[in-house]
Design a protein around this nucleic acid. Structure first.
Lengths: 135, 135
DNA sequence: TCATAATATCTCGTATAGCGATATAATCGT
DNA sequence: ACGATTATATCGCTATACGAGATATTATGA
C-alpha cells in the first residue's frame, strides 16, 4: 500500500467526469439496443457469440467468462434471449453436457445493425477518455 | 445513413475485446466497492455527491441526471445508501420541495479509500482502449 | 386570493440481472 | 464400475431500473 497524495475537489470532479463519459457510452449503447428491442445484456451476449473465435460456437460457460458473470447468470440471459428468437441452443454432439450457442438469422441482423455505429462511438469514447486522463 | 463496409469476423472480435476491457474495468471497480461493502451504484452515488461543484450539495434530481437514471431510480438508490449511513438527506431550507445530499463521515472515508486506485486504473483503461481503437 | 400549473420527491408494481446454494446429467479417470 | 469432475439448470433472494401515479411545496395567473 503506497502512500497517496490527498485528492482535491478538482480530482473528484475529474473522476466524476470520467465515469460520466463511460456511463454516457453505456447509456447510448443501451438505447441503441433498445431501439432493436434488445437489452444491453442481450446485445452483449450476441456480440460474445459472434466475436467468439473458432467454428463451433461458444458454450454457455465461455460466454459467462466473456461477460464476467456467473454461469447461472448466463443461463438466465440465454433463456430470455432464446425466447426472443435471437439465438439457438445446440447440444454438442461429442459432449452432451455442453450447450453451444449460435445466432439466429434475426439475431445476426440485429447485431449487424448495431455494430458499425458502435465502432465509431467507441472511437469517440477513447478520444474523450484519453483527453480526460491526460488532464 | 451512410453506407458502411461489411464487418469482418476480425471486426467483431475486436469489438468484443473492446467491450471486454470496459467490462473488466467495471467489474474490477465493483469488486473494489464490494470490499468496502458498497455496490457499484452506491459508489457512483457517493462520487456524484463528492464531485458535484458548489457548496450546497446536489439534489436528488441532479444526481439522477449525473447518473443518467430516472429520478425514481435515484430515490431508491438514495434510500438504500442512506440506510447504510453513508449519506444524509437534508431538506433545502429555502425550498422545501428539494432534498440536498451530503456524504456522512463514513461515506467520505469509503469514497476516499476507493478513489486514488480508481484514478490509476482509469489511466490503464484509457491506454488499453486507445491501443485497441487504433488497432 | 384561490385555483392551477410546475417542480421535486416518494410509493407501488414489474422486469432484468446478478449471485449463492443446490440439483441433474454427462464425461473422465482409475 | 464408480467416484470425481464438468456443464448446465433451477430456486430463492437482492439490487437496479423504469412507468404510472400520489403527495407536498412553490410559482403563477385570473
Amino acid at each position: 500500500m503506497t502512500s497517496r497524495p490527498h485528492l482535491t475537489d478538482a480530482d473528484y470532479a475529474r473522476l466524476l467526469r470520467l465515469r460520466t463519459q463511460l456511463r454516457k457510452f453505456e447509456h447510448w449503447s443501451a438505447q441503441q439496443a433498445a431501439a432493436m428491442d434488445l437489452t444491453a445484456s442481450q446485445h452483449q451476449l450476441l456480440l460474445a457469440i459472434r466475436g467468439h473465435g473458432g467454428s463451433k460456437g461458444p458454450t454457455i460457460g465461455e460466454v459467462a467468462a466473456d461477460l464476467l458473470v456467473a454461469h447461472n447468470t448466463a443461463v438466465g440471459l440465454v433463456d430470455r434471449t432464446q425466447e426472443l428468437g435471437l439465438i439457438d441452443r445446440e447440444r454438442d454432439p461429442s459432449d452432451h453436457r455442453v450447450v453451444r450457442l449460435a445466432l439466429s438469422a434475426v439475431g445476426r441482423e440485429k447485431l449487424n445493425a448495431l455494430s458499425a455505429e458502435h465502432v465509431e462511438e467507441l472511437a469517440r469514447l477513447a478520444a474523450v477518455v484519453d483527453k480526460l486522463v491526460r488532464n
